[in-house]
């Protein structure tokens, strides 16, 4: 199947000016203005197929929002190619945006002073949504997102969670083929997050809408996305199945053992003791190196065990390790330069 989003060698470089201060400075700025270059997005490539729900993650300042802004036509790239749904976003802005929806979690598209219902009516006119479709969609979203309680409240008085639901509704009213969500769960409590995840899943599964989602909550990705792309320092360092990522990098497991008596040094081959309190000991080992059953077998040969438990490393920790140690960055780097 051909891709709905095609991104090739995409680059966005910002200039950060160091201006001279004051009125005289303002004049000097006209002649010599010094700046630094920030490579916010640095030669990225990817394709997304119709109906995919892709998680786009990476640490702060990695370039996620910049990518989304280019895909939605808000920013013109420094170089590279973008085709979304057959359009070049920033060139054919007005026709292009009819086919997409976008939610930036930190902002709202709704009219601050107007009741939610008025905002939605205005959007109907703006997108020229035919009455039957508008009514059908609104009725459906009202129910799933539970909007009824605050339909007549001015947007400025909505809670963050309510506003996010309202914004999601606003972005989907015109049946976009493609939706960009930049941190749609930011600042929400567990219940609100869950509701939003369900809505995103619904839109993707029931309507086949293609969705690109950025988030800092890895649980969003774990629940929603098969495919995940990780960007760091403007480069895509991973693009594939989340499972695969976790199996490769999240191979760490923990074996917690309660011994029947206290052993001074209950060492075990292929596993490190990371915690020891009386007869409670926690070992850490790698999935690839050794199996849990092998370790348990070895332990029971030498020691008397009262109880034990095996845990995988939490996903958050795996991702944090990947960011902090830049595991993927080096990994890809090596692949490209096998000599070094």
């Amino acid at each position: 199947m051909s891709s709905i989003i095609h991104v090739q060698d995409l680059v966005k470089t910002f200039k950060i000016y160091h201006d001279h201060k004051g009125y005289l400075g303002a004049i000097r700025n006209l002649f010599d203005r010094k700046y630094d270059l920030v490579h916010a997005v640095d030669q990225i490539n990817f394709d997304i197929h119709p109906g995919e729900l892709v998680g786009y993650i990476g640490p702060n300042g990695a370039g996620k929002s910049t990518t989304i802004k280019m895909l939605t036509g808000l920013l013109v790239p420094t170089s590279g190619e973008v085709r979304v749904n057959g359009y070049i976003p920033w060139k054919e802005r007005k026709t292009y945006v009819k086919h997409i929806g976008a939610v930036f979690g930190q902002r709202t598209t709704l009219w601050w002073d107007l009741p939610l219902s008025d905002s939605l009516t205005l959007l109907q006119h703006i997108y020229e949504i035919p009455d039957p479709l508008y009514k059908k969609n609104l009725a459906m979203f009202r129910e799933i997102l539970e909007l009824d309680a605050f339909m007549n409240t001015p947007v400025r008085s909505l809670s963050l969670g309510q506003r996010m639901r309202a914004d999601l509704c606003a972005a989907m009213l015109h049946d976009p083929k493609l939706v960009f969500l930049d941190e749609p769960t930011i600042g929400l409590d567990v219940v609100a997050k869950e509701r939003i995840r369900e809505f995103i899943q619904f839109i993707n599964r029931e309507r086949g809408t293609t969705i690109l989602l950025t988030t800092h909550d890895i649980a969003d990705v774990a629940k929603l996305c098969e495919r995940v792309m990780i960007i760091d320092h403007g480069k895509i360092v991973f693009d594939g199945k989340l499972d695969h990522l976790l199996r490769t990098y999240g191979g760490r497991r923990f074996l917690s053992v309660q011994f029947a008596e206290i052993y001074p040094e209950p060492v075990l081959e292929n596993a490190d003791i990371i915690k020891m309190e009386g007869n409670n000991v926690v070992y850490s080992f790698m999935r690839d190196t050794v199996s849990a059953s092998h370790l348990i077998h070895k332990l029971s040969e030498s020691y008397r065990i009262a109880d034990l438990e095996v845990n995988d490393q939490p996903i958050e920790d795996t991702i944090r390790e990947i960011y902090e140690k830049q595991l993927l960055y080096n990994h890809n780097h090596d692949k490209k330069n096998p000599a070094s």
Partner: peptide
């Protein structure tokens, strides 16, 4: 500054 202008650019109107 608040990004409101971006929101306008996302709509299919002049």
């Amino acid at each position: 500054r608040r990004g409101g202008f971006d929101q306008l650019l996302l709509r299919p109107v002049n």
